[in-house]
Design a protein around this nucleic acid. Structure first.
Length: 471
RNA sequence: GGUGACAUAGCCAAGUUGGUAAGGCGAAGGUCUGCAAAACCUUUAUUCCCCGGUUCAAAUCCGGGUGUCACCUCCA
């Protein structure tokens, strides 16, 4: 009874706009997360969303659930504009860099995977590429055509949103108003503004680098069909959870729902979770804009991936997070002190007296299960570390347990051991100790500077001086 | 023009079935120290954009205003 109460997970479901107790259909939670489009590096705003999804998965795992996680890799060109006209991002990228679209996709896929690894994401069970699932997408379009949801015009095969009465529900759209304000040039022949391409025909006058044969003619899949096709293939017609960035609500996810539910007659995903944006100096970070910051940009300024991770954990995933260099440096300080605290605990595990740790465990789990409230969960971690009622070994065990969700690499933080320090430095430290004993302060301070130059910091404690490597 | 968010200390932020403001960073003071650093302790929002209203009680509810952002156009 207490056990089940403790383990209730509440998640905010965009579909109902409310926090609901999470229930999975089977033993294993099926989780689909909209992945990166690989025509450029992922910027830190993209990464914030993927990080939220990693936290979600870790929270489910922490609660003892099994998770099957599928993330797509969009390696086929979407169009630059949702008006279903204009250039193809992949092809544009290829021209820009003088490579084939396939090279571009491979390069940036590898790059984003490297970022995921650096950020300590638990890898998805399946990363699926859109270009590997052309047949599935064609089949899904066929089904839609058979059921009368599709129509063909010069430009391609389109989904008729007027046939799907719930179309506006998910995003709570007001179609009439949308139409009134639309500044987008509409594709000729489209019946409703909201109709979208399922399959696009290749231009007659030029050869695309990526195109496939289909029952309707040579071309390439529309913008939204890949997620429906791949989610259904790998996770069934109704995955438990489907995630993405908040910008996906009105168009991408709305369309996914329309085409998927039209095809299967079943709800497409029970829970829809959306991550808010990282905002940069009051401005959204646009992948297509010139001003984006990537993980490497941070690293060049001495901000490691774990610091970025820690920074993101300071805000709730459904709230915009304001990025600034000042803010990230605050996080840097906080993370440093976290790490040195852990290191100190490892050096003195026996310090303090053991007490009951359960209240802390319960509190932690309550926070993470309350719609992934990481800011509060982090506060629980600080409370543990600064408590004087726990033994160090217990603090350490709690921190490591919590870190299964945080993923901050706390388990890898080692204590500082004399054996790790070069003999030369120990010799210098020894000399300084002598100088201090002789009250030769100028020499002592000079030696401290020398040691500092060699990358070590002296920490004088009641039991003697220690060295710590400056990171 | 339409739609949706948001506005809490120097900075990043949590907190809305109303009950009297988490946490981190920074700063100030202290303990320790030859000094410094580290560590530890203490302090740091009479108040939550503004103006009204409801209430015994509002950051939390209602009305109005101001500002910022996002989406409607590729975008996490």
């Amino acid at each position: 009874m207490i056990e089940t109460e403790k383990k209730r997970i509440f998640l905010y479901n965009t579909r109902t706009r409310s926090k609901e107790p999470f229930v999975s259909q089977g033993d294993c939670v099926s989780l689909y997360t909209c992945g990166p489009t690989v025509y450029n590096f992922a910027h830190i705003g993209n990464l914030r969303t993927f990080l939220f999804e990693d936290i979600l998965k870790r929270t489910l795992l922490f609660n003892g659930l099994k998770v099957k996680h599928v993330m797509n890799i969009t390696d086929v060109g979407h169009l630059v504009s949702d008006a279903d006209t204009g250039d193809d991002k992949m092809e544009t990228g290829a021209v820009r860099e003088g490579k084939t679209v396939w090279d571009i996709a491979a390069f940036y896929t590898q790059a984003v995977m490297a970022d995921f690894k650096k950020l300590n994401f638990i890898p998805a069970d399946i990363y699926c590429k859109a270009t590997d699932h052309i047949a599935e997408q064609i089949n899904l379009i066929k089904t839609l055509e058979d059921k009368g949801y599709a129509y063909i015009i010069d430009d391609g095969v389109y989904f008729d949103t007027s046939k799907f009465s719930r179309y506006a529900d998910f995003a709570r759209l007001r179609i009439d108003e949308l139409e009134a304000g639309a500044r987008v040039e509409m594709v000729k022949g489209k019946r409703q503004v909201t109709d979208f391409a399922l399959w696009k025909f290749s231009p007659k006058d030029k050869q695309r680098q990526m195109e496939w044969e289909s029952p309707w003619g040579k071309g390439f899949p529309g913008w939204h069909i890949e997620c429906s096709a791949m989610a259904m293939k790998h996770l069934g017609e109704t995955p438990d959870i489907h995630c993405g960035g908040i910008d996906h609500i009105p168009v991408h996810h709305t369309n996914e729902i329309a085409q998927s539910e039209a095809a299967t007659g079943k709800p497409f995903a029970n829970f829809w979770l959306h991550g808010e944006f990282l905002v940069l100096e009051k401005e959204k970070m646009a992948k297509s804009g010139g001003n984006f910051i990537i993980l490497k940009t941070l690293e060049e300024r001495g901000i490691g991936p774990f610091v970025y991770r820690f920074f993101c954990l300071s805000a709730h995933y459904r709230a915009p997070l304001a990025f600034s260099w000042e803010a990230i440096q605050n996080a840097q300080q906080g993370y440093n002190s976290l790490v040195s605290k852990i290191s100190e605990l490892r050096n003195n595990p026996g310090l303090g007296f053991p007490t009951d740790v359960q209240p802390y465990e319960v509190e932690f789990q309550r926070e993470i299960n309350d719609d992934l409230n990481m800011p509060r969960a982090i506060a629980v971690l600080w409370k543990v570390l600064r408590s004087d009622a726990l033994q160090n070994s217990q603090k350490l065990a709690l921190a490591e347990s919590f870190d299964r969700v945080f993923g901050l690499g706390l388990g890898q933080v080692s204590g500082t051991f004399v054996s790790d320090i070069p003999a030369e430095l120990l010799q210098l430290l020894n000399e300084r100790n002598q100088a201090r004993k002789a009250k030769d302060w100028p020499l002592s301070d000079c030696l401290r500077d020398t040691i500092l130059e060699k990358g070590y910091k002296i920490i004088d404690t009641a039991t003697g001086a220690k060295l710590e490597k400056i990171t």
